[in-house]
Design a protein around this nucleic acid. Structure first.
Lengths: 138, 138
DNA sequence: TTCCATGCAAAGGGTTTGCACTCTC
DNA sequence: GAGAGTGCAAACCCTTTGCATGGAA
């Protein structure tokens, strides 16, 4: 599997109603080519490899934009940083705080049942399930 | 329902193997008297009302200590701050990002099934379920 | 005396903001 | 020429750290 082409990334942005710019295309290629769990700063570093004239602010702005347009999910798992998840199909997460590793758990494998009916006036946004693990100690 | 007494708080600390100090007693009273979802700074402010000679560092240290001793759970729900949950029985959370309100959902009402068997060498720490909602828009 | 526990202020790290410049429509 | 997108650096906020003081065993 390889990084999506510039053409593909451009198409992806247009489909989502996002005005195309050089930086946005590259950010899309970094984030959307594979299922990833990258922090904003990791995205920033990768984008810089190809497009050094990219600022941190632009990366933060763009990731926020991608989130609003549902291209990525913002995960709040580690208090140190937010990570952006390009897997938009329903799934949950397994998190090892010791090494920061985050793994997808397919929604088929895990079900949340008995979802309480929401108080009127509230609308379900999403359900996060985080399975926190650590390395077993003897 | 009212704030637990100094005696009760002291007892609670001793039971948990935490050396008793003035500040820790007051922090315990603030956090453990009721089911709460307070940030470190909210705890800091409340503790200061009674014991003004309390530093932010002490509150942070103490909350970390309480967490290690399982007196509270640290919730990672809002990227802006960690909140400390004094409800130690199994339960999940409903979170409204618009106003920051966090509500407990009893574990009886909601079940997570099909928990994947963990890879060898990993130990389950806990499972967080966060139901993210927002105010319904017409 | 030897540890903790604490207060205070500074540092740290991720994220946001303010402002000027550029480009596009 | 108005508005959006961007780069840069500074500001911000929550949390941690370093260091000196104070107390308890």
């Amino acid at each position: 599997m390889e990084t999506m082409s510039i053409t593909q990334a451009t198409e992806r942005l247009r489909t989502s109603g996002i005005p195309v710019t050089l930086q946005r295309v590259e950010i899309a290629r970094v984030v959307l080519s594979f299922p990833t769990h990258l922090s904003a700063d990791q995205v920033f570093a990768k984008v810089r490899e190809r497009i050094p004239e990219t600022s941190r602010a632009t990366v933060y702005n763009t990731l926020k934009l991608f989130r609003e347009k549902k291209l990525v999910r913002e995960l709040i798992v580690d208090p140190e940083r937010r990570v952006y998840d390009s897997n938009t199909s329903p799934h949950y997460h397994l998190y090892n705080a010791e090494n920061g590793q985050l793994t997808d758990v397919c929604a088929d494998e895990l079900q949340v049942i008995g979802m309480p009916s929401l108080p009127p006036g509230l609308q379900l946004e999403e359900v996060d399930v985080i399975i926190r693990v650590r390395t077993r100690r003897e």
